[in-house]
Design a protein around this nucleic acid. Sequence first.
DNA 1: GTCTATATGTTGATAGAC
DNA 2: GTCTATCAACATATAGAC
Lengths: 225, 225
Amino acid sequence: MDSVSVSSPQDGARLESRRTRILDAAEKLFAEHGYDGVTLRAIAREADVDVALANYHFGRKHELFEATFMRRAELLNRWRIRALDEAIASAAPEAPSVRAIMDAYLYPLLHGPHLSDPAWRSYYALVAYVNNSTEWGGKLMSRFFNPMVDRFIDALRKALPNAPEEALFWGYHCLSGALTLAFAQTGRLDKLSGGVCSSEDLEAAYTHIVAFVTAGFEQINLSVE
Amino acid sequence: MDSVSVSSPQDGARLESRRTRILDAAEKLFAEHGYDGVTLRAIAREADVDVALANYHFGRKHELFEATFMRRAELLNRWRIRALDEAIASAAPEAPSVRAIMDAYLYPLLHGPHLSDPAWRSYYALVAYVNNSTEWGGKLMSRFFNPMVDRFIDALRKALPNAPEEALFWGYHCLSGALTLAFAQTGRLDKLSGGVCSSEDLEAAYTHIVAFVTAGFEQINLSVE
DNA sequence: GTCTATATGTTGATAGAC
DNA sequence: GTCTATCAACATATAGAC
């Protein structure tokens, strides 16, 4: 159903199907300008296809948006679940540490072509937009990511046996907010730090976020509340 | 310059100036749908004024947007700086603790009418939108908030003498992301937690975020890096 | 699958009366 | 300050030829 592959072998790898080109263009533009800031015409122009094709392949505009959001969400979920399973296996019979759980959650974001591929960077900015949007946040994030997140919360519950339920969920919310803002790469950090940090340095973001949120979660177990 | 007050005493407090009504309507709608998701006509309808008035009072659409963003930003900056100054004064001659600094940063968000006033809740959602937007984030957040944030980073620098500069800025980024997502009230947390937590419970958000980010910052001072 | 053509409505902005 | 009237541009969506 999802034709991420090239349209036909003889074209060479450079020639993607028009359907995929629309998805790529939509991803880039939605990430930059949000849902309402992008027209189907702009997407068609960016993808170098006719305007009517977006409608033919994806139906209405919001369906194209959701298809764009879903494409990489499914990949990401698979990779994260696999990383979590590995963390659980290698810590068995003990529960994996908070740090190991955070690594499983964050490492797949950077592994593979992600850092150098501008399409993945666009996608992360798109997730930041969706996550913080009152229109999409509650719906899309929940639908596509919550089942995966449930598994991570469960692992945290075992790693932090004294933690109140409520604190686990708010802790995840802190993690989610910190992560999506960092990966949105808005350039604000560059200005705030006077050049010491770069918004585009996702490797640095990873390092600092893992340390920050690990301590944030571990504190939950200690608090009396 | 900013006529937040009522237009004339004899109207009674209920009758705001049309200019203020436009600002209020813009705040609500921009928070819900983002910049491009709102038309000047929708704002005029919500404010119950003529379409042409938005242009007369604020000029172009993006100028209205910036005026909306600025209005409460200036108040918030004042309150936060005052809270920080008080924390510094009451800890003197020592530097205030990380916890005290975080309290100064977060407490003004809830103090006063903020919790019960839907307009402030809208504003927080608007900040979340701006913060994570590739179009506005780097520009507007920096312009209106960075001078205030500089002062908080400076306080953190003194509270955490072993912290590398870079880690302080990334730490703030984590704080900012966690905070704005929580105050965006997207409803995701309600679903994720199966009703244990509520996105709208800003008091709970405050409690958990303060604890989470305080631990996140304190960890920086300990890490060898 | 792809494109041309078009229906039908909306957009931001302003000129000019009051 | 406020409103009426209007413009030129652009929006989504689809019907029907190829």
